[in-house]
Write a protein that binds this DNA or RNA. Structure first.
Length: 255
DNA sequence: ATGGCAGGAAGCTCCTGA
């Protein structure tokens, strides 16, 4: 089973890229973030025609998440239970006995901003919810745009980014708490190339200059981590015309 | 030097992203 995540930065604009990628790679499950599409305008027929079922939780202009699946979807949940939030950032479903959580963690803007505090509050609520999910679902995968680079090796220039949003101690501590709960960073289960990133700024020719960050992740429960055979970032979509600033990451789980 | 690029909604500019 191939599971993947991709922040598409507008599903409307990226739909051709997504459909190409589905055809090329044939993933079983794909989590999307930043669809920026309200539910009434979701491109349902195009995605169904590609052979996928889909659930989505969107809003106009900002945020928005979706999960595509080649297999039957059940037990759909939107948002973090008990956490009041207008922003559509979370969707959870069950596919083939695997609980899949799709998450778009807040960006945080700057460490001294209200949005940073919102990010920390959000991450706290997310972590507490995932603790209960982990008890209920031994086979649990949490995929998405975490907006956190867990370690310096996940940052093109750690000195320049030191203390900034995406790498600050409190954000990294929040990520570490998820790992301490038992989740594994799927990407780090295997040897990986240096300078492996999932996001590159649109500006300053950052992609060609390899100035990126690894902020999109696949976290796996112990059960799924034991059965994970591969995890890889696919940078091809980032090099296309009019790309998303993020590129997909996928993992293969033996089921 | 806080720039730069992109998307969306609105509308000839601004907010947000990361």
């Amino acid at each position: 089973m191939i599971i993947a995540t991709w922040n598409v930065n507008s599903l409307k604009v990226r739909l051709p890229h997504l459909l190409d990628w589905l055809q090329q790679r044939g993933p079983d499950v794909v989590c999307l973030q930043e669809t920026k599409t309200e539910n009434a305008k979701f491109p349902l027929t195009d995605i169904q025609a590609a052979g996928y079922q889909v659930e989505y939780s969107g809003q106009k202009t900002y945020n928005g998440v979706a999960i595509l699946s080649r297999h039957a979807i059940s037990d759909i949940q939107t948002d973090i239970p008990g956490f009041a939030d207008e922003q559509k950032r979370v969707l959870a479903v069950t596919v083939a006995g695997v609980r899949v959580v799709c998450a778009y963690v807040p960006n945080g803007q700057a460490v001294d901003s209200e949005k940073y505090q919102y990010k920390l509050n959000w991450l706290s609520a997310f972590q507490h919810w995932l603790a209960t999910e982990l008890e209920r679902h031994p086979r649990l995968a949490v995929l998405g745009d975490y907006n956190i680079a867990p370690a310096d090796e996940d940052v093109h220039d750690p000195k320049a980014w030191e203390g900034q949003v995406l790498v600050s101690d409190r954000e990294r501590a929040a990520f570490r708490q998820l790992v301490e709960m038992g989740f594994k960073d799927g990407f780090r289960l295997f040897p990986q190339p240096e300078k492996s990133f999932t996001w590159w700024d649109y500006r300053m020719n950052a992609f060609k200059r390899k100035m990126g960050m690894r902020i999109d992740h696949i976290l796996l429960s112990p059960d799924l981590a034991r059965n994970c055979r591969h995890c890889e970032i696919d940078i091809e979509p980032r090099g296309r015309e009019r790309p998303s600033d993020h590129t997909p990451i996928w993992a293969e789980i033996e089921t």
